[in-house]
Design a protein around this nucleic acid. Structure first.
Lengths: 188, 188
DNA sequence: GGCTATCAATAACT
DNA sequence: AGTTATTGATAGCC
């Protein structure tokens, strides 16, 4: 495994130069597949190392040009969970008594979501889905799909109404206001 | 920038050894932040290179331990879109006339989703959300949130019902069955 | 944020 | 899939 000096005959320039590559799509299918495989491994390793060394939460989703899926999530989480955190951060209006900053602050970090899945706080997602539905995508569904959707939504709505009634009636406890936790002003 | 041989005095072992690191959480906060910043850059570069060289679709979401968000998506897509593809692949029952394989096949690759967002095919997501609602998470919402949720879902449901009626009545065209496209059996 | 020694990834070859 | 020359990433410093 030790280094050798460059072979003397390399000066002749006959061998293709190793190493450096242009940053553009590799046209040759075989080369592209090989490179994809190797670089994919490398990147997943990097992701793993970063997550361990720096205690970062990482979700990595890769689709090969052939459509195959490769995924990574830092050990303490899942793709769904991390993407859910991302989703919340991007789609939830944050109403804090704290001045806005020039970077995004994740207010969900301390929300103790251990047992929760990506869709645990359904409000922003439902709102978004509602918007999608209100727009045009349902046009793409066939009758069977629409029936399924109708049924699912009806059931869900019934549950929501029941919960609401119970809360209003005082049967269920009011949920306390979510608290927000701002991390130390680290510079990264 | 040319290489030097190792300094002779290094044999004395006085200098801290460079390079190799143990794969475990860096305890020192400052070191961890610096490493995070540097390695994060490196990984995003890798992701970018892989996406360009190999024409891969990549979504990368990173939360620093301080809760700050860093993201990357290959140029042709967005995080939402790629995660949506992931979501569909993981949560949609695939009913094909093709024998099951030992790896996941992405049947959505050719679905012409150019203009669509993550939630464009609401059925599997709505079903999942419905399930969440049917379980227990609405208990966490306060009354105002529940009212909002109820209203949003009611509106969405109305739209769905209308679409369904129109489809059944023949006012809207039946959506054609989605076709599935299996990629060439590349080995990666 | 930049520098350099060193380690790690990987392109070309087998 | 395995090997090695080379490029690339980065740890420790400043």
């Amino acid at each position: 495994m030790e280094r050798r000096l460059p072979a003397a005959d390399e000066a002749g320039g006959r061998r293709t130069k190793r190493g450096k590559v242009e940053l553009r799509r590799i046209e040759d299918r075989t080369s592209r597949q090989v490179r994809f495989s190797k670089r994919r491994s490398g990147m997943f390793k990097k992701a793993y190392e970063l997550s361990v060394l720096c205690d970062a939460e990482i979700a990595l989703v890769v689709f090969s040009p052939a459509g195959r899926l490769y995924e990574f999530a830092s050990s303490t989480s899942s793709i769904d969970k991390i993407f859910g955190r991302y989703w919340d951060l991007m789609h939830t209006t944050i109403d804090l008594n704290i001045e806005a900053r020039d970077y995004r602050v994740d207010c969900n970090i301390q929300l103790r979501q251990k047992e929760h899945s990506v869709l645990d706080d359904p409000v922003p997602k439902i709102n978004h889905i509602t918007q999608c539905v209100l727009e045009s995508n349902v046009n793409e569904l066939n009758i069977a799909e629409l029936r399924g959707l109708e049924e699912a939504m009806t059931n869900a709505l019934t549950v929501v109404k029941n919960k609401l009634m119970m809360k209003v009636a005082g049967v269920l406890p009011q949920s306390e206001k979510k608290s927000c936790w701002i991390s130390e002003p680290d510079q990264e």
